[in-house]
């Protein structure tokens, strides 16, 4: 059972990897946006906001946001391919194999998660080149990837649920277009929570993106603050658990 499950997921990975290799453009394009935020937005506001953000350096402040954005974008698009498979009939073709149906989802989920976290690492490298130094060093970077994984899991799960719930990919694109920016602005990505109007900060505190950003920002700027890290990590894990439960419910019906 475990062996066949791994063989199936290996086949899925092979498929997604082969496609990614041929579509490096998309891979670069998803990275480009956060890098631009970091390089242009971060640099342009660098002098203006000096001293008004925690840590005093806006680029350091923005690093967490750029990382989280990368994971968010990658994860949100992650389910789209499964939707295309359903639309084209390829999914049905796969159902005529002895594949565990859940492998269709786990293969994609794990692949997207791995790719988005790797992309996040590239963002951290870019920030390093721009002079950003982690207060917690390499261990902090490693922990950042873990936090990215927790957030990526949540976003990818949402994306996969959408792939099975929506009727066609047009709806999928609409939702991505509607949701992306507000979710970003309703987080602490661009401004610290303390600097936001009360209502905005209240909403932002419920946003999983904020949890990931606050945890990573602490690792970059402040250092090993166990209180913040545990709290934010716990919140993210809670969101993950909730979404995975929801996904299990939805998929049990859709994959049956």
């Amino acid at each position: 059972m475990m062996h066949t499950f791994l063989l199936e997921n290996r086949a899925m990975w092979m498929r997604w990897y082969a496609r990614m290799r041929r579509d490096l453009f998309s891979l670069v394009a998803t990275l480009l946006q956060p890098v631009l935020w970091l390089v242009l937005f971060g640099s342009s506001l660098q002098n203006m906001v000096r001293g008004t953000v925690p840590g005093g350096d806006y680029l350091s402040f923005m690093t967490a946001a750029a990382f989280v954005m990368t994971v968010f974008n990658g994860g949100l698009n992650g389910g789209l391919e499964l939707m295309f498979d359903r639309e084209s009939g390829f999914f049905d073709r796969l159902l005529a194999t002895p594949m565990h149906r859940v492998s269709f989802v786990t293969g994609r989920f794990s692949f997207v998660l791995a790719v988005t976290v790797a992309q996040g690492l590239l963002i951290i490298a870019t920030a390093y080149i721009l002079g950003v130094r982690y207060a917690t060093g390499l261990a902090g970077i490693a922990l950042t990837l873990v936090v990215g994984g927790l957030l990526g899991a949540a976003v990818t799960t949402v994306s996969i649920i959408l792939a099975f719930v929506l009727r066609h990919h047009g709806q999928f694109f609409s939702i991505i277009a509607i949701v992306s920016l507000p979710v970003l602005f309703l987080s602490s990505a661009l401004a610290p929570l303390d600097a936001m109007p009360g209502w905005l900060a209240a909403v932002a505190r419920l946003n999983p993106l904020t949890h990931a950003i606050e945890a990573i920002r602490t690792l970059v700027i402040v250092g090993w603050d166990a209180g913040v890290l545990l709290q934010m990590g716990g919140l993210l894990a809670g969101v993950d658990a909730l979404l995975l439960w929801l996904a299990a419910r939805v998929l049990r019906r859709r994959l049956a």
């Binding site: 199936e8 086949a11 092979m14 194999t97 492998s103």
Partner: peptide, 12 residues
């Protein structure tokens, strides 16, 4: 070839 290997994987 990749399509075939993919299906082969799903057939364990």
């Amino acid at each position: 070839r990749e399509n075939l290997l993919f299906v082969a994987g799903l057939h364990h």
